[in-house]
Structures are given as structure tokens and as C-alpha cells.
Design a protein around this nucleic acid. Sequence first.
RNA 1: GCUGGUGUGGCGGAAUGGCAGACGCAUCAGACUCAAAAUCUGACGAGUUCACGCUCGUGCGGGUUCAAGUCCCGCCACCAGCACCA
Length: 802
Amino acid sequence: MAEVYNHREVEEKWQKVWDDEKAFKTSDDYSKPKYYALVEFPYPSGQGLHVGHPRPYTALDIVARKRRMQGYNVLYPMGWDAFGLPTENYAIKNHIHPKIVTENNVVRFKNQLHSLGYSFDWDREINTTDPNYYKWTQWIFLKLFKAGLAYKSEMPINWCTSCKVGLANEEVVNGVCERCGSEVVRKVKSQWMLKITEYADKLIQGLDTVDYVEKVKVSQKNWIGKSTGAEVDFSIKDKEDKLRIYTTRCDTLFGVTYMVVSPEHPIIDKYQAELKNWDEITAYREQAARKSDFERAELAKDKTGVKIDGMTAINPVNGKEIPIFISDYVLMSYGTGAIMAVPAHDERDWDFAKKFNLPIIEVVAGGKNVQEEVYTDVATGTLVNSGFLDGMNVADAKKKMIEFLEEKGIGTAKTNFKLRDWVFSRQRYWGEPIPIVHCEKCGYVPIDESELPLELPEVESYMPTDNGESPIALMTDWVNATCPCCGGPAKRETDTMPQWAGSSWYFLRYTDPTNTEALASKEALEYWMPVDWYNGGMEHTTLHLLYSRFWHKFLYDQKVVPCPEPYAKRTSHGMILGSNGEKMSKSRGNVVNPDDIVRDYGADTLRTYEMFIGAFDLSASWSEDGVKGCRRFLERVWKLQDIMTDGDDYSKDLEIKMHQTIKKVSYDFENLKYNTAIAAMMALINEFYKKNAVTKGEFKTLLTLLNPVAPHITEELWQAVGFEGRVYQTTWPEYDEAKTVESVVEIAVQINGKTKATLNIGKDDPKDEVIAKAKEVIADKLTGTIVKEIYVPGRIVNIVQK
RNA sequence: GCUGGUGUGGCGGAAUGGCAGACGCAUCAGACUCAAAAUCUGACGAGUUCACGCUCGUGCGGGUUCAAGUCCCGCCACCAGCACCA
């Protein structure tokens, strides 16, 4: 009788063995086939790990461990994405330097991860706040700057009128400042921008070459939002100026009954003197300035706007005079900041026209009364009331109209993207300094590469200044510099980079984390890149994933990296919710700390449960009872020692089951179906217990299959039973396809699609024979005329009778 | 409002168009125990029947098919993200 399963003893023992043996150190032997598995590195927050973190880490740990058993040289690294707002705010509140806060949090996180038995190669740990790391983040920025992809632009920031600081979107709650509850307005500030839009097409095209889960591809495509349409100039009555609009529906130009410009549109200020309702316009603009783009969207149900009194436009295709409105549903940041409105065929325009009593002219006929209901179907409609377009379908009309516009010189075909350039500066302390100086004579000048890393200065207070500058701006010693260009006095850029910067290239650094000459050696990059499998949260699909692909593509163009896409495969995991089905959060009181689960049930139980909890890509609710069930499963595995019999082979009656299980587990581990892989192993041990016996060979296979999920207990049993070496060094079991199929199968016999009986047949029995047998079994129920007989081999017989 | 996703027993969830509910939890019954816990064995979608059975059943309404949780059309609810994208 073996001892009872003491998870604490077992887990501590094997974690120490793995550390001592450097069990999961990545080899520098580039002759072996490589496998690079990557999970998004965490932000080391003060709360420590929560139970959502281990889900993706365990999933790819399973893949990494399996790959090692299959003979690959595996890179499965971990690090810290440690710059950013929460740490800075914590530092301000508690008067501890963010560097210290980060160090403490990292220690805590690392201990927690270690206690879960992950096979990370800790020798390759990285930290984005380490100057040796951010030296290369700055180096990439300089490359971007020199390539003309970094530029300065006036951009609005959230400005708290009371705290007098810029706020992140996250810090603005319901339009007021999170800290003080005062009003937040949008204030324009000169910001560093990165021209991600330059790569918009490449970022879309690249998606065809990678293996991402479909919804991630769709999100990226929609976010980039390529659209083809036309820019058209509308004359302003009695003025030189034209109002340029962008439209995807130039076929509907004859249906334009008014125009709308964004409240920020420069044309308004230009003709201020001639506008008769300036006060009304000003009031509306002030109101709009208080809203974020998102709030504008949210409040969109009730359209607002003001008619510009004193300025009208001329529809270029029919010469009609039309009114111009300002409304905040038109954004300055997309297109030209002005639109033509076709209420008959655009939902927002229709709503707006109804509210302001504007005419609705049908130009695409499709059977609906456009006075009652908007008609937006482009597939079946026919052009009407549209002069030379009448009778055409929408697609032809678009082409014809573009020809016409270009011929007359009033418009051109134009591709547009939703994607905007990346606002790259933050008026904050805890980020990478931007390695630029500003010289009165030479303008913005990059510092020399030899001066990198440009280290963050030690400051007394991290509090943003009341004029909206970064706290670093108060450090005159640091700020005053000499211009690398003319040698004259210059001032350093005091804004810092956003948190996204460090995470946009970290996967490159893991391949060669201590290199001082380059962000990584050519050899390391050529061997390891691209990442073979990258898993992360859906919430990072549009920002982090897109930003890092952008940087990678840029570095590829700069010949720094050897491949155009950083990640060959991308999957994403679902969130772990509290036991009440809500998002885990302190305020809801439903947070589960993994430390408690590790202490009470063990890391192996936690790992097993997190994989068994449900479909990997869907969210799942936490259940302590579910944890217990997984613990029970491991106990049952433990107690298999007691019923183990000699024999290296599989027993005859379980041979098929063994081969089926190896096949299923192997397949499921590769396809995000960890829950059914574990279910298959549970079903297998249920078979052992039914027989009250497990052969040595069967046990060995089970331990190997289970090892990636529950590495400690399997290693302990492996040793206890007397198998050689370590499980983690063993070879992944193989199966024989021929032995996964039962020779006798039970099939269902149906009449008109309803199962009436079952029948045992040989798997290769001919159709006629099977149907004859089936008819015998249900003879008493065959009372009508048989019209059809269907046999799906090995599955089902269906007799259709009338 | 837009985009993406999800709806299956008491619960978490399984199901290449082919016997819905694998596996687990909870519950109930039995075994073991002085007893409880643990463990082991069995039952476990709903209605109906003494029973063999029969009928219904995968958010709702239609459709395709010999056969639909799965495919198509139209809805509803919930979750997540968001930059009203012209």
C-alpha cells in the first residue's frame, strides 16, 4: 500500500529537482528542430497573480512539455511588462519609487509562477523596465524616427480641470476624473505619433500568411478597416473654399440633401465672421469637446447638431444648394471630417434627417418607402432619380460616378482606413524616455545610438505637473542637453513611451536576452523566429497584437529580423469568471487567489482544473467543487500504484482504448481541447478501476500523457513505480491507427430518423448485410412502405417508410 | 449605435450533419463504519406508464435534409471590445 498523496511534499520536491537539474533550460544547439511557444508576459501588479493567469500559461506549458518529449529544442520564456500607470499611481500614493514597487511585485509573481511548476526557462527572464532592455526599445524608436515614421502632431488628451493633469481613458469614468470626480475636457497637446497607417495594407495582407484563430483575424481586419470609396469636393456657395468629403457610396451623390462637418472642422473658424448663429455653434462645440469619441458614440441614439446659418454648399452633380450642419457624430479623425448626407440610404443620416426635418430623396430603388424606412441594401437596388446613373446597379453606378468625378476634376477614387496613427507619448514618469532632444535651431534631433540607454532620471515626485508636462520636465539637469547636430543648447523630450512599446518586440529579446551589441543576434533570430505559437487574451487583439506586428514588419523592412510576421500561430483564451459568473474583481468580492488553491489542493490540481474547466477559448466560471473533482481524479491516479500489475504491454481488452486515448490526447493538446483530453484520461482510469488492474505499460503511458498537465504527481509516481529517468525526458507515446478502431461496433437503427433499436455489426460488414440485419431487429415496427434505406458505415441505419 | 462572441440537464460542459447530455460536479440509494468523513458501487433531462415502452427536449419562429445542437433565413437574451468610420 503506497503512502497517501501529499501534494505539498511532492511539489516542493520536484520543483527543486527541476531547478537543480536545469530541466527546462533552452539549449543553444541550433541543429535540433526548434519550437518557440509564447504566452503574453504579465503586468506585475500589486495584487499578485490571480486565477486567470494560469489558464494560458498552463495551456502552453502543456504544449511546451509535449514538444520536448517529441524531441524539439523548446523556447518557453517568461518576463515582465512592468512600465505603466498602475505601478506609477501606487508609487505616488504610497511614496515608494516605482522601481522598488516593480521589484517587489516581480518577486511575488515569480514565486507564484514557480509554485505552479511551469517549465519556463528562467535564465531568459526579461523586464521591460531594465535599462539593458529598454535600450533596444529606444533604439527601435530611433530607427522609426529616422525612417520618418515618428512625428509630432497636435492631439487631444483627457484633461482633468481640477487635478490639472492628463488622464488615460481608463482614468476617465463617466466623463469625470476617477480621482477627484471633476469634469474632464479634451485638451490639445503636441504628441509623438507613429505612422502605423503606413503599414495598414501590409498588416491586412500579412494575415493571409499566418495561422490565427478566425475571430482574431476578423478583429484585426475590422480594426484596420480598409474601405474603398471616393473623395469629392463640394463647393461652398459664394466662396473659394471647397468642402472635401469621403464617401463609400458615391453612387448616391444625387440623393445628398445636406452635409455635416465635425465640430472641430477648420472651415467653421475660417468663416466665423459670416456665421449668424456663432453663439449657438460655439456652445455646441464646447459641449462636444467634453465628450470622448466613445461617448459621442454612446449618446448617438439621440442625434444632436446645429445648422450653420450663413453658409451653404452646392451638390456638384446637380447644382442644388444644400445646408451644412455641425454634429459630433462626424469625427475629425476619420476621413476628411466632413460628410455628404444621403438620408434615404444611410441609417445615421436617416435618423438625423428625421430629427431635423430634412428632405429624403430616394436614389436607389429597392421596394421600400424611404420616407418610412431607410434602405441600405447595395446588392439588389437599382439607381433612380440620378441622371446618368439611372437604371444601373450600385456597383456599376459607383464605377461610373468615379469616372465622372475624375473627368470633371471634382473627385477621385480613394482608399481609406479606420486605423489611426499611434499616439506614442505619455506625460508620465514610469515609461521609457523618448531619445530625442529639441534644439531651437535644428528642431527635433535624435540622440546618438551610443548614448543609449537614455536612462530614466531619479525624481522626487512622480506626480504629473499642473501644466500637463511629464514630471521629468522638472528635472532641469536632465532636461538640459546639447544638440547632437549643432552642439548648441537643447532640451530633452520629457514625455515617455506608452506601455505598449516594451511589449511590441519582447519576443525577439527572449531569443538572446543578454546581447549587448544588438537586440538579439542574427543567428538567434534566424533560428527561433517566428514564434510558433502565441497565446494571449482577446483584449489584446487589436492593440498589442497589431502594434507588435507593425514594429516587426518595420524591423523586417530594416533587415533587423528575418521574417515578415512575428507569430506563425495565434490563439486566445477565455476569461475565468467568479463563481457567480461575473468578472473577478475586488469590488465584487469574487477573486480567487491561486496561492490558496495550491496550498490546499496542489499546483497539479489547479493546473488540471484550469484545463478541465471548459472550452479554452470561452469564458468559464470558477467552482471550488470542480477543483475538488480534479483533486479526486489525481488521487485516483495516485492509487493506481496499488493495483499495478507486471507487464510492459497493454492488456488485450484495453489495447484499443489505450491507442484511442493516446490519439485523442495528442490531438486535443494541439487543438485547444484540453478539457476533453483530460476527460479522456479520466475515462481511461475508470476502465482500470473497473478491472481493478493496470499493467506497468498502461501506467507508463498514462503518466506520460498526463505529465504535461500534472507534472509533479506524474514525476513522483514514475519514480515510485521504478521507471527509469524522468517523465519529462521520456518520449511521447505513439499510437497505431489500425488499433484505434473497434472491430465490432454498435450502430443505431432508425425509422424515419428516430432510433428504435441498436445493433452490433462488424466494422467492415457490407451495406446489404447490415440493412438486412437492421430490418430484422425492427421487423415488427416496419408497417409502411419502405421508400429509402440509408447506411452510414459504422454509424447508423435509417429506414424511411411511409 | 457598431464589431466580435455565447445560449445544451440542478450546475460546469461533450458531441467530423448520423443513438444529444461524454467527462466532471451536485443530489439520491447501497456497501464499509459504533457513527461521521473519506472511499467504493449504482441511479440521475422532462412528462407519462406497474412495466416493455411512448411522447417531448439543445434561447425563440421558420426552412433545407432520410437525418439538424450542428447548415440557411428572421428574431430574442446575455457577455466582451469599441474609434457613430461615412
